[in-house]
Amino acid sequence: DGCIQFTRHAGDVLLNFNRLRSRDILTDVTIQVDGQHFHAHKAILVACSGFFYSVFMDPKNTNLSAISLDPKVDPKGFSILLDFMYTSCLDLKDSLVLATMNTAIYLQMEHVVDTCHRFINSS
């Protein structure tokens, strides 16, 4: 017995989720950040962020379809992290790495925080 492992499968699935997001198909939540609106899939947000996990695992938030983040959250940092969730690529520009790191702290994405720290220390 054995199995055939499709090594590209995880990437192919994530790419399809990103295509669904870009076409606003089956998105089930709108995240409002400082006046900007981002449509996304709760399952991806919960899978990638400790913050969203705690929000959407709370029974009273079962039917939540819109959520406003704390005004201190930078929309550009959030946009970079949302793209990361759907592509595994973290866009790091010197001018935005601090905003990205602070947003990752807020979203409880510790591994991304560590990576931003190392990027800041190395540059």
């Binding site: 055939i4 090594t7 870009s22 076409r23």
Partner: peptide, 21 residues
Amino acid sequence: YEGVNTIKEMGRSIHEIPRQD
């Protein structure tokens, strides 16, 4: 899933959702 008899398939595994219809 690293079984003894795992064969690795490098090709695409599922359909690709188009950028638009």
